[in-house]
């Protein structure tokens, strides 16, 4: 029952997003623009790209991702859909996990799209793809959990546009640092390092906390 509800919610969000493509278009455009601008700001042919390339990549992911995560619960405000969802038999954790899943898939799609753009502009490519995918999965899940939970928290605030980034970005910093460090190693062909354990622990702890707290946040 729980899984079915999760899947229904996730499918609905993805379906809606595919119809309107609002967040998707904004996100893709934004990530391309950032990568382009940074290519002008820093000379992408230098060797230093190996050092700050991963930082640039994850910053792009974080900002482009925020566009997707912001919409997550905000899309339910129109026509009072959020009330209808909360009043339905769908539990708050199911609602949250469903949305997080949809967000994760959208974010991951944007990231996969950005990757070749990044490789093209900066002439860098990981020697082995699998570790990069792993860090992308772990890092993106953490960003998704944080973004979705705070999207739920700020959805009814009048200062939502201001409060969401204020709350979300500091929480994302540890994740981004870990992801950036691992990605630097991966791009250089080295072992991934301690960061992986940190990300896994972070993912588990924050997912648990988010699922526990989401009902408190949604039901007054």
């Amino acid at each position: 029952m729980f899984l079915r509800q999760v899947w229904t919610i996730a499918a609905k969000d993805l379906h809606s997003e595919l119809r309107t493509k609002e967040a998707w278009n904004a996100s893709i455009a934004f990530s391309v623009v950032i990568l382009l601008l940074f290519a002008f700001a820093f000379d992408p042919s230098s060797d230093q790209i190996r050092e700050f390339g991963s930082g640039l990549l994850w910053m792009t992911y974080a900002f482009a991702g925020a566009l997707v995560l912001n919409r997550s619960f905000a899309r339910e405000l129109q026509n009072d859909c959020l009330d209808a969802l909360i009043a339905s038999p769908v539990s708050s954790p199911a609602l949250f996990v469903g949305k997080a899943l949809a967000n994760f898939m959208m974010l991951f799609a944007v990231e996969l799209f950005s990757l070749p753009v990044f490789g093209l502009f900066y002439n860098t490519w990981p020697p082995r793809f699998a570790p990069l995918l792993l860090v992308m999965v772990l890092g993106t899940w953490a960003l998704t959990i944080i973004g979705t939970l705070f999207s739920a928290l700020t959805v009814n605030l009048r200062l939502r546009e201001l409060m969401l980034p204020t709350l979300v970005y500091p929480m994302m910093i540890p994740v981004l640092i870990a992801a950036m460090t691992i990605t630097t190693n991966v791009l250089a062909g080295n072992a991934m390092g301690f960061g992986v354990r940190f990300l896994v622990a972070f993912d588990i702890i924050f997912t648990m906390l988010a699922v526990v707290f989401v009902d408190t946040v949604l039901v007054g």
């Binding site: 939970l149 928290l153 709350l167 929480m171 906390l209 707290f213 408190t216 946040v217 007054g220």
Partner: peptide
Amino acid sequence: ARFAAVVSVLGSVN
């Protein structure tokens, strides 16, 4: 109070 409590717990992990 509810929202602040959630942020407080998550922040304390940090």
